[in-house]
Computed example of a mutant assay.
Amino acid sequence: MVKHTERPAFPEAASVPVRRRGRPPNPGRREDTRALLIRCGTELCTERGFQITGIDEVLKRAGVPKGSFYHFFRSKHEFGEAVIENYRQYYEKRLDRFLKDTSMPPLERLDAFINEAQLRFALSNFRRGCLVGNLGQELGGMNDNFRAQLAAVLNDWEVRVAACLQEAIERGDLPASHDAAMLASLFWNGWQGAVWRAKLEQSAAPIRSFGAFFFRSIGRKEMPAEYAEQPAT
């Protein structure tokens, strides 16, 4: 059973000092406005991509006057970096909530993360997918700064999953011959493909199939019921 089923939302952004220009908004609402811009930008970039998302669209969704944007961000590029950093913080909190939940065995934690991701994806009507995966395909070959930032995010996620899988190995839930770091890398490679296809097909089926295949491939001794009828390949 999935333990966390709240409606998906992107969090308020952390405050990152930037050089300002233009007339500042009300000081009491300044960081709220910046966070709102980043949250709306995250939603739009996840749905549509970074390059096609215009600053005017972000301002319109946020309900913020045009002159405010350059008070918070020197350029669209700087805004994109803030969006990625905000998504990293948001997603790592989600991962930690599952992968560090010691009330469950390690593989059940990973299973719970997969199940909750399906629910969140469905609640967004399969519009958003994974921002890091989306921007990695869009910008990875075009901008070295974005590429390095996105690669670092994926590496952080791999470390978290590797720690969970290593715990499963030490418990005897997985064969001792397994390399947890390699399995974590394979997990995220497959996960990004499954999420992309789920968005394309507007169905959670690719994510369920990936979960079934991954757990069978690593030799999980007891498969959850939701994977019982999923294809092995």
Score class of each variant (00 low, 15 high):
Asn115Phe: 11
Trp191Lys: 02
Asp173Asn: 08
Arg34Pro: 01
Ala194Cys: 07
Gly41Gln: 14
Glu158His: 05
Ser124Ala: 12
Leu99Trp: 02
Ala198Gly: 01
Phe69Asp: 00
Leu186Gly: 02
Ser68Phe: 08
Thr46Ala: 09
Lys221Gln: 14
Cys130Pro: 06
Leu165Lys: 03
Val132Leu: 03
Glu6His: 11
Phe113Ser: 09
Tyr70Gly: 09
Ile52Ala: 08
Ala62Ser: 12
Arg128Gly: 11
Glu6Gly: 13
Ala184Ile: 10
Pro175Glu: 09
Pro65Thr: 06
Arg21Val: 11
Pro206Leu: 00
Ala194Glu: 04
Arg74Met: 01
Ala14Thr: 03
Arg7Gln: 08
Arg21Asn: 06
Thr46Glu: 10
Tyr87Lys: 11
Ala152Leu: 11
Phe126Ile: 07
Pro17Leu: 05
Cys45Tyr: 06
Asp144Lys: 13
Arg19Val: 06
Phe213Asn: 05
Arg160Pro: 00
Asn134Ala: 13
Asn115Cys: 12
Gly193Thr: 07
Val83Ser: 09
Arg19Lys: 04
Phe213Leu: 13
Asn115Trp: 08
Arg74Ala: 05
Glu78Ser: 13
Ala35Pro: 11
Ala204Cys: 15
Val83Gln: 07
Pro224Leu: 00
Gln192Tyr: 10
Gly140Ser: 13
Glu108His: 09
His178Gln: 07
Pro224Asn: 01
Ala35Tyr: 08
Ala184Lys: 00
Pro224Met: 00
Met104Asp: 12
Lys66Arg: 13
Lys199Ala: 10
Leu119Asn: 11
Ala212Pro: 05
Met1Asp: 11
Ala204Ile: 07
Pro24Leu: 04
Leu99Ile: 07
Gly28His: 08
Leu154Ala: 11
Asn26Val: 02
Asp96Gln: 12
Pro231Ser: 10
Asp173Trp: 00
Leu150Val: 06
Gly63Thr: 12
Asp111Phe: 02
Leu44Thr: 03
Gln51Tyr: 05
Leu154Arg: 08
Met142Lys: 15
Phe73Glu: 00
Leu186His: 03
Phe187Gln: 07
Gln51Lys: 09
Ile169Val: 15
Leu154Glu: 08
Gly172Ala: 06
Trp157Ser: 07
Asp32Glu: 15
Leu131Asp: 04
Arg61Ile: 05
Ser177Asn: 10
Tyr91Gln: 13
